[in-house]
Simulated assay, not measured.
Amino acid sequence: METRQRITTLFLDIGGVLLSDGWDRNARKSAAQKFDIDHQEMEERHRINFETYELGKISLDNYLKSVVFYEKRNFNIDDFRKVMYSASKPFPEMLTLFKTLKEKYSLKIAAVSNEGRELNEYRIRKFSLDDIVDSFISSSFVHLRKPDMDIFQMAMDIVQGTASEILYIENQPIFIQNAEQIGIRSILHHNYRDTLVELIGFGLEPFSSDCGLLTEEVTLIT
């Protein structure tokens, strides 16, 4: 029977796993409606500019000047930035889950995410992500962006871990597939319960059965 190497390190996506996406299509549509902006034109300008912002090559203000404030508005950039930030919401069960696993198994945790600098820094502070995450390999910090496989190699270099010791939790299949090409085991995240069951299958069981872990979930992997 094959024995899996013990997991010592977790790579976590932020948007879609720990928190809501920071600035997704729905958030942009809502902001366009709130400020009475042409949504279609805003989307086209976003498409052209956002990758550059996520790579850390332009500031959030420069992104917004190109996407929203390319003409005179009856609101200011601070007003818009506040609405943009307010779209971020926590996933409390996921935050608690990974905090518990970190403490129980002395795991190293790195966030490997595509996020613009200002938005990323706001989300780290607002939701105290640095209480859980040891290293932030954010696209705007390292100037690499998933699906570029170099970002995973850089993350391994930063945490000083080998692929066989790492488990990556992500909600985008293409990023999972790329990480697996270099030997990183992965969980495609859909929801809390499914991810919890898969984590237990990797030997990372956060709770005993009398502390909230569902009996039927344990049964599935034993």
Score class of each variant (00 low, 15 high):
Arg4Tyr: 14
Ile7Leu: 04
Leu10Ile: 05
Phe11Tyr: 11
Leu12Asn: 02
Ile14Gln: 01
Leu18Glu: 02
Trp23Ala: 01
Ala27Pro: 06
Lys29Arg: 15
Ala31Gly: 05
Ala32Asn: 14
Ala32Val: 14
Phe35Leu: 10
Met42Asp: 02
Glu43Pro: 01
Arg45Gly: 09
Arg45Phe: 08
Arg47Leu: 01
Thr52Phe: 04
Tyr53Gln: 09
Glu54Arg: 09
Gly56Cys: 03
Lys57Ser: 06
Lys65Thr: 04
Lys65Asn: 14
Ser66Asn: 15
Val68Gln: 09
Phe69Leu: 12
Glu71Thr: 14
Asn74Thr: 09
Lys82Asp: 12
Val83Phe: 06
Ser86Asp: 15
Phe91Gly: 00
Pro92Gly: 03
Met94Ile: 11
Thr96Cys: 07
Leu97Asp: 04
Phe98Thr: 11
Thr100His: 03
Lys104Tyr: 03
Lys104Asp: 00
Tyr105Lys: 07
Ser106His: 14
Leu107Phe: 11
Val112Leu: 09
Asn114Lys: 13
Asn114His: 12
Asn120Ser: 15
Ile124His: 04
Phe127Gln: 11
Asp130Lys: 15
Asp130Glu: 15
Val133Asn: 07
Val133His: 08
Asp134Tyr: 04
Asp134Lys: 00
Ile137Gln: 08
Ser138His: 02
Leu144Pro: 06
Lys146Ile: 02
Pro147Ala: 01
Met149Leu: 05
Asp150Ile: 02
Ile151Met: 00
Phe152Asn: 03
Met156Leu: 11
Ile158Tyr: 08
Ile158Ser: 10
Gln160Tyr: 04
Thr162Lys: 15
Phe175Gly: 00
Asn178Leu: 04
Ala179His: 06
Ala179Asp: 07
Arg185Phe: 00
Ser186Asp: 06
Thr195Gly: 02
Thr195Trp: 09
Leu199Ala: 06
Phe202Val: 04
Ser209Arg: 15
Asp210Glu: 14
Glu216Arg: 06
Glu217Gly: 00
Thr219Asn: 12
